[in-house]
C-alpha cells in the first residue's frame, strides 16, 4: 500500500522539482555556473551573457503560443468546414494536402519565408504555424469523424440545429482528441522555434547557436535543456488537461 503511494506521488514530485529547477535556472543562472564551468574551455563564460535567459525563454514561449493559437483556430475551423455537408467534397483533398505539407522540412519553410517577410520573428511564426496546423487538423478531423453515431442522432432527434450540435455535442466530444493534436503541435513547435534563430528570431536557439559558433558546450547544453524541460512540462500539463476533459466527457483515457 505504502509503496504504491510513493509510486503514485513520485512523478508529480519530479515534475515539481523540474519546475522549481527551471525557474531557478532562468531567473538566477549564476547559481549554476560551477556546474557548467567544466564544460567550457580557456575561461569562456559558462552562462549565456549576450541576453537574459529569462527574456529569451519568455520570447520563445510567446512565439510558440502565438503560432499555436493561430494554428489551432485555422486547423479546427478547417476541420469543421470539411466535415459539414457543404464542405464535404474538400475532405479527401484536404487529407492529401495535409500529407503533402508534412513532407516540407521546417528549415526549408523557414528559409523560404525569409524573402517574403524578412528576417526575425515573422518567418519563424510562419514556419511554426504551418507545422502546427498539420497535427491539429489531423486530430480534429479524427475527432469529428469518429463521433458515436447514436449521440449525433440523438442530438438531431432532440431538434438541435446544425450549429447547436456542433457547439454543444460534436466539439465537446472531440475536445480530448483535438487537445492531443495541440499537445503534439506545441512540442514540435518548441523544438522547431530554436531553428528560428538561424534567421535572427529571438528564441532560446540564440543560446544554442552562440554555443555552436564559439565552440562553447555550456551554452549548447543550457539552451537545449531549457527547451527540453519546457517541452516535457508542457507536454505533461496538456496531457493532464486532456485526461480531465476526457473524464468530463465520460470517455476512457487512451
Amino acid at each position: 500500500m505504502k509503496e504504491a503511494g510513493v509510486k503514485a506521488w513520485l512523478p508529480s514530485l519530479l515534475r515539481l522539482a523540474l519546475v522549481v529547477l527551471l525557474i531557478a535556472f532562468v531567473t538566477n543562472p549564476g547559481w549554476f555556473e560551477p556546474l557548467l564551468k567544466p564544460l567550457t574551455e580557456s575561461n569562456a563564460p559558462a552562462i549565456y551573457n549576450q541576453g537574459s535567459l529569462l527574456t529569451l525563454t519568455l520570447l520563445h514561449l510567446r512565439t510558440v503560443l502565438i503560432a499555436t493559437v493561430a494554428a489551432t483556430i485555422v486547423a479546427v475551423a478547417l476541420a469543421i468546414l470539411v466535415t459539414r455537408p457543404a464542405g464535404v467534397e474538400f475532405l479527401p483533398l484536404s487529407r492529401s494536402l495535409v500529407n503533402i505539407g508534412q513532407t516540407f522540412p521546417p528549415v526549408a519553410v523557414l528559409a523560404l519565408a525569409v524573402p517574403a517577410v524578412g528576417f526575425g520573428e515573422k518567418p519563424t511564426l510562419i514556419a511554426l504555424f504551418l507545422y502546427g496546423l498539420l497535427p491539429i487538423f489531423e486530430n480534429a478531423l479524427t475527432g469529428l469523424t469518429t463521433l458515436p453515431a447514436n449521440v449525433v442522432e440523438a442530438a438531431r432527434g432532440a431538434g438541435m440545429t446544425g450549429w447547436q450540435r456542433l457547439v454543444k455535442v460534436e466539439l465537446p466530444l472531440s475536445a480530448p482528441i483535438i487537445l492531443g493534436g495541440i499537445r503534439l503541435s506545441v512540442v514540435i513547435s518548441l523544438a522547431t522555434a530554436t531553428i528560428g534563430s538561424t534567421v535572427a528570431a529571438r528564441t532560446l536557439g540564440e543560446v544554442i547557436i552562440a554555443g555552436l559558433l564559439s565552440n562553447n558546450l555550456a551554452f549548447v547544453l543550457q539552451g537545449g535543456l531549457i527547451v527540453a524541460a519546457l517541452a516535457v512540462l508542457i507536454y505533461d500539463g496538456l496531457s493532464a488537461i486532456e485526461r480531465y476533459t476526457a473524464r468530463r466527457m465520460g470517455q476512457e483515457t487512451a
Binding site: A191, T194, I195, G205, L217, V220
Partner: peptide
C-alpha cells in the same frame, strides 16, 4: 520520448563533445 524534446540543433551540438 525525452530525446525527441531536445531541439535538434542542441542535440547535434551536445554530441560534439
Amino acid at each position: 520520448n525525452i530525446i525527441q524534446t531536445i531541439p535538434s540543433i542542441a542535440l547535434f551540438g551536445l554530441l560534439i563533445a
